[in-house]
Amino acid sequence: MIHYLFIVIGAVLVNNVVLVKILGLCPFMGVSKKLETAFGMGAATTFVLTLATGASYVIDHWLLLPFGLEYLRTLSFIVTIAAIVQLTEMVLQKTSPVLHQVLGIYLPLITTNCAVLGVPLLNISNKYNFVDSLLFGAGSAVGFSLVLVLFAGIRERVEGADVPIYFKGTAIAMVTAGLMSLAFMGFAGLDRYQ
């Protein structure tokens, strides 16, 4: 049991996808200007990332490994992710128009979110089993959403602050993200026994 807890804590805080692993920076910088959009993007990514980790585990272990097709891993994973994104969009449109309205515009963007491809690849290099993979995927997604929302909150405040003119825009956002990353490094060691 404690093993699972450590995987989740490790994925959310210690090895945060965005700030420590540096994956998924495009949405992190792109959709963090307003708090509401950050929430929407976080929710959509959490959903797709969790599904994608499960699906890619199944594909890797039942399709690619038995037939010795490891060289198709990158190709099959990206196609799977694109299919899941498309499927999610279609299912949401049919079953829950409200949710579709909230998450709809973020869904196509997720295909090129490198966290969604990166986490399944990390699962393989970490040699996680199915449950571990799912937990790691869900934890990473929660970590992504957490950092995205925190960053959007900080950024809304920075917009109104009196920033030196050359720093305005992306430069100050980069330094802010760097400071957050520094803060998250303080979690190091939390996912291990003493």
């Binding site: 700030l19 420590v20 692993k21 430069a171 980069m174 400071l179 490094m185």
Partner: peptide, 11 residues
């Protein structure tokens, strides 16, 4: 370390 990347690109 990861924060350094952000700082250098910011600079």
């Amino acid at each position: 370390l990861p924060p350094g990347g952000f700082f250098v690109l910011g600079s």
